[in-house]
Design a protein around this nucleic acid. Structure first.
Lengths: 269, 269
DNA sequence: TACTGCGGTTCGCATATTGAACCGTCGTTG
DNA sequence: CAACGACGGTTCAATATGCGAACCGCAGTA
């Protein structure tokens, strides 16, 4: 791991739920030496990727990110194209909706949207989505590039007791996604959440990412699932259109079949 | 310069006008070795800060930036607070408006807004604003931390023949800003543009950045200048309020005086 | 006063980083 | 078509660079 990579990974520890991190705290989180961490934070600071709050000496994400994100959006304005569809999806289902973006072998969270409909809701606070344990990740494995599966099996971390931890388990899950057209995360990432995802495609015609709904497991019923699936399809079409792609006919057919005989499809898993 | 810093600086070469950069091109721009640049780009890629377009092998900014910028915005939503005011400013003046943010010793562009009023207009395409050559930069030197001037004089690059290139020249310019409350960039950064800027303040009560209007030199008249100044003051008050700060009374007084006897003030420069 | 945890610094060692040189491939051109 | 140059990517010896244990001063506190 290059030292540049090490420095950059520090950034991923910032999140909306933990926006400010002190030096010692960062050392503990990253599991690295204080001097090293300090130098890395300094490097990040000179580049404007973090800034130090003078009062508390804590670090937080810096303004240079706004710059670069702006350039990225101006060049590849995918986030804009997803926002409206996600809002509609969250509103229609009453659950948290989010979109993910595959870049290389990594699935990044792009944008998420909570619904105010319930007081309890799933909160998306991730930068990178594990491929083997989330509905979006399984979608990527099912419809993304084939080599993705090879990288996924190298890290089958068990997030819950439902996480697939063997290559065989994972392959059955992926096969199920290929049959139904829906990625399912049945408490496989967090014990309280139930995820459903569908793939989206970009102008190259390839798999580009996924759009998903994370529901609270305790209120997840067959009716809700059916409703979420319908809305997911609408959102996937919308986002795919915005990104200049089209849903492959094969997948549209899967969705139709899957919605018409849900029980038969579920029995295949 | 740490290798992390070196890798991070590569990111700053991306801009809306140059969103995709190949390996060799990046080497030339950065003036560094090919192998080194390649490794740096790889590190950036694994961190999601750049991604490689499979078709052309060129690199462009990656999706991880969107993540982090989102967190930054959620934590310190300054851009949102400036957007509306900038739009109003651009609309009222018919010129390009922008806001800058001081972090450490560097003045970053935060957000800009072009007015559709004229067919020719100033285009803001900078990540970092030179302190000695822009209206916003002079504002920072005049009202920001004192040590800023020391770092500014270490790089007095001449962008045009009007750029201040000696410490003495720069100090007269800064002194003028301190007397009038307005930063002026009289074709000091580009030969065709005329900038006017005022400082904005954040919740700490310190100088936080500047809001500015960049006009096309050929249509810059005394009337336009007066109009821009009035609108700038309105925008500065608005943005400062949004950032939780207040305009120091001393600066409000400068503006009032400067607007009442513009000729007398100009004679001091 | 002694103790703890904090941000920040020092310094010798060893490892990760460096860049000249090299490779295979592509599109161009005489 | 073969020679050419530009490109992305790789190798390897040399050494610059990053590393971390130990240390410093400070602030809170018991």
């Amino acid at each position: 791991m290059s030292s540049a990579t090490k420095a950059l990974t520090l950034l991923s520890y910032f999140s909306t739920s933990r926006p400010e991190i002190g030096l010692s705290q960062m050392c503990r989180i990253a599991g690295r030496d204080k001097a090293t961490t300090y130098r890395h934070l300094q490097a990040l600071e000179t580049a404007g990727f973090v800034e130090q709050i003078p009062a508390t000496k804590q670090y937080r994400l810096g303004p240079a990110l706004l710059q670069l994100a702006q350039v990225r959006e101006a060049t590849v304005p995918r986030k804009d194209g997803a926002k409206a569809a996600l809002a509609a999806l969250a509103d229609a289902t009453g659950e948290t909706a989010h979109a993910t973006l595959l870049s290389g072998n990594v699935l990044y969270g792009l944008c998420d949207c909570e619904s105010p409909h319930h007081s309890t809701r799933a909160v998306i606070d991730m930068n990178v989505f594990p491929l083997h344990a989330t509905a979006s990740g399984l979608c990527s494995l099912a419809f993304g590039p084939e080599e993705l599966l090879r990288t996924a099996v190298t890290n089958l971390e068990a997030f819950t007791e439902n996480t697939a931890t063997t290559e065989a388990e994972l392959e059955t899950l992926v096969e199920d996604v290929r049959l139904t057209g829906f990625g399912r995360g049945d408490k496989s990432f967090a014990t309280e959440t139930q995820g459903l995802a569908v793939p989206v495609f970009d102008h190259t015609g390839h798999f580009a990412g996924a759009v998903a709904v994370a529901s609270v497991a305790s209120r997840f019923t067959a009716e809700l699932e059916c409703s979420i699936k319908s809305e997911l399809i609408i959102a996937a079409r919308e986002i795919t259109r915005n990104w200049g792609g089209t849903i492959p006919d094969a997948i549209e057919a899967l969705w139709t079949a899957s919605l018409n005989n849900p029980t038969e499809m579920e029995s295949t898993s």
